[in-house]
């Protein structure tokens, strides 16, 4: 087991996942539903960034442009779908988001087909670092993600929009009474979560491949990160993403033979990798139903 390598992989995973989990938790705290289509926003972001770069745009222009476009798409989706059922019970919104997820994924499939794409045609340069390997792409992903999260932190704590968002999450009736233009804020929030998810998706695509499964493959880990951090807490979601990233990489790498009643090396079958995030989430839900960090809302 190479600890440095595990840490590097976990950090990179967390920085991608955090950008997506953040939106899940924000939508939940403001609009009170778990958005099952959130993974597809990441999917759209990755495909748009790919399409723009394939059209000749520089990658560092294609990814932000794709993110901004996805932000607008998220706002449009809200206006076309979620705004019409704003007051409906949570379970109706859940079903709507499930239908939306199927719709978005297959629109992407109809446009780009089911084969997958990659940004680069060559290998990323990788260098050895404290006993592990890290690629230039991974360093870039880490930096971009940290800057994006920092920006969001500043927005939440130091701007009028951030204050309005927090007020809205705490009590939408009260916020309305205090003259906050709720619908305008909601639109801005959708723009932000849409572009952040898109950025996360594009970064995943940058490091690995862009395929139609991208959305579904991040949604459970993103939910798990949000639940871990305490639904409603953006900072919690980011921490949750880090824990999920670590769990996904450590659980499979550990030799569990130190447990009693085992003989010989005992590894968890890699076939269960996709279940790790979910099982961590279930364990947390049983032990600490309000999340590890007792998140309230929008803090």
């Amino acid at each position: 087991m190479n600890l440095t390598q595990i840490l590097i992989n976990s950090l990179v995973r967390a920085s991608e996942l955090g950008l997506i989990a953040m939106g899940v938790t924000l939508v939940f705290s403001l609009l009170r539903f778990a958005n099952f289509a959130h993974g597809e926003l990441a999917l759209i972001g990755a495909y748009l960034a790919y399409a723009l770069s394939a059209a000749g745009l520089d990658l560092w222009l294609a990814i932000p442009l794709g993110a901004v476009a996805t932000g607008f798409i998220a706002v449009a989706i809200d206006k076309a779908l979620f705004a019409r059922v704003r007051t409906a019970p949570g379970l109706v919104l859940l079903v709507a988001s499930m239908g939306l997820s199927l719709f978005l994924k297959n629109v992407v499939g109809a446009i780009w087909g089911t084969k997958s794409y990659s940004f680069e045609g060559s290998l990323a340069r990788s260098f050895s670092f404290a006993g592990g390997f890290v690629t230039s792409t991974q360093v870039i992903i880490l930096v971009v993600s940290v800057i994006a999260m920092l920006c969001f932190h500043l927005l939440l704590s130091h701007t009028r929009l951030g204050r309005a968002m927090r007020a809205l999450a705490d009590d939408s009736e009260l916020a309305r009474a205090r003259g906050i233009r709720v619908e305008a804020i909601i639109s801005k929030v959708w723009f932000i979560v849409g572009s952040y998810a898109a950025l996360g998706g594009a970064l995943i695509g940058l490091e690995t491949v862009i395929s139609l499964e991208l959305g579904y493959s991040v949604i459970l880990p993103a939910f798990a990160a949000a639940v871990l951090g305490g639904i409603g807490s953006v900072h919690g979601a980011m921490l949750g993403a880090l824990i999920i990233g670590l769990a996904e990489n450590i659980v499979l790498a550990i030799d569990w033979s130190f447990l009693p009643a085992t003989s010989g090396p005992l590894y968890i079958d890699t076939g269960y990798k996709l279940a790790v995030a979910f099982l961590v989430m279930v364990a947390v839900l049983i032990l600490r139903p309000r999340g590890l960090f007792q998140g309230t809302s929008g803090d």
């Binding site: 709507a96 499930m98 239908g99 199927l102 719709f103 978005l104």
Partner: peptide, 9 residues
């Protein structure tokens, strides 16, 4: 699947 998704929505 686009149609099924649209229908649900």
């Amino acid at each position: 699947m686009v149609v099924i998704g649209l229908l649900i929505m």
